[in-house]
Design a protein around this nucleic acid. Structure first.
Lengths: 102, 102
DNA sequence: TCGCTTGTTCGATTACTATCGAACAAGCGA
DNA sequence: TCGCTTGTTCGATAGTAATCGAACAAGCGA
């Protein structure tokens, strides 16, 4: 809706982040956002139902990995790279590398 | 028992590893093993039931994070650091740093 | 205001995971 | 062989997550 709940940088919890990324769909979302900066929900659904995607975006958002901002009827998602780097330096980079290498 | 199932290095799956580490108990086990090389199950239980610990060791083992070797009545666990580094270079180090910083 | 678009929330179902006690298995020393 | 130790497996229960359709909410253009 309107008001999204994003944890503060210092509230980002490692185990929660790890859990959020322990899903192929979600790690792909994060990989994509790492490449193209921002994306709407629709751009990332790959044909999956909206309700399922909304669930995954929520998991990523509440873990502190992405930030969602309403923009008209669309909602723009972006990776919180700076926040994650501040909390866990070097970590995101290595995980993205591991994810994209497959 | 006798025969443990350990995935080969190239079979180690990132999402499975992430899931295995998305639990405070298990990430603590891995942190401890990173420090003291090896440990038996009993050394790491912190008063928890053996059956619970066995479950967690199994999750780590099947994800490819640890190797368990029978040694008499004890079972020795060690971190598969070289294997994980080979699969996901630099990754384990940064995650352990993030975990220990709390 | 009407209708279209985008995405969230609800409700239900299914599946998986954590937890723990109890039973079991295997090694080892006496 | 008996009994102790170490750890695994089984069975049951409770909690949580994934999935999807359907209903809902909000912005926007005509």
């Amino acid at each position: 809706m309107r008001t999204y709940k994003h944890p503060k940088t210092e509230e980002i919890d490692l185990t929660r982040v790890l859990y959020a990324l322990s899903d192929p769909i979600r790690i792909e979302i994060v990989s994509t956002l790492a490449k193209q900066r921002t994306a709407t929900c629709a751009e990332l659904d790959a044909g999956r139902p909206k309700s399922s995607m909304s669930h995954h975006f929520r998991a990523l958002r509440e873990a502190g990995l992405i930030r969602t901002t309403p923009d008209g009827t669309s909602h723009i998602n972006e990776l919180r790279r700076a926040d994650i780097d501040a909390r866990f330096p070097g970590w995101l980079k290595s995980i993205l590398k591991a994810a994209t290498e497959n």
